[in-house]
Simulated assay, not measured.
Amino acid sequence: MTTEDELRLLPWVGPDGKPCYLSTGDQGGYVSRLADHIEAYQLGMASQLLEHARQILDDETEDLEELHLLAAQLTTALRDVLRVATSRVRRPVTPGRP
């Protein structure tokens, strides 16, 4: 857990590919709300992609191009989910917030 005055890892990177952080005690500010919405979107997309992966693997496809695309998408989704998890571990729990 962190205190409110510590940095929040945001669910995007800067133009140079480095992590972005938000320094604010205002959890209801515009950037905090935007980050919350993006995190929710990323988690939803990861869930949908996981279901899609199950379907492809259940079909026992031998289409290497399709499997390569799936692996690339799963890698991106896993990166996003890990960033969300890291950010949430560092933030204090606020009732009513994801």
Rank of each mutant, 00 (worst) to 15 (best):
T3R: 11
T3Y: 06
D5K: 06
L9W: 03
W12H: 07
V13T: 08
V13Q: 12
P19Q: 07
C20F: 00
Y21G: 04
S23H: 11
G25A: 13
G25Y: 01
D26R: 13
Q27Y: 12
V31F: 10
S32Q: 10
D36R: 13
H37Y: 12
I38N: 09
I38L: 15
E39Q: 14
E39G: 11
G44D: 11
M45G: 00
E51N: 07
E51G: 02
H52W: 05
R54E: 15
I56M: 14
I56N: 01
L57W: 07
T61D: 09
T61P: 03
E62F: 06
E62C: 06
L64T: 04
E65C: 02
E66S: 07
H68R: 12
L70G: 06
A72R: 13
Q73L: 14
T75C: 13
A77F: 01
L78G: 09
R79C: 12
D80R: 15
D80Y: 03
L82T: 03
V84E: 00
V84K: 01
A85W: 02
T86Y: 00
R88W: 05
R88L: 11
V89M: 08
R90A: 15
R91Y: 03
P92R: 15
P95G: 11
G96P: 04
G96A: 10
R97W: 04
P98R: 13
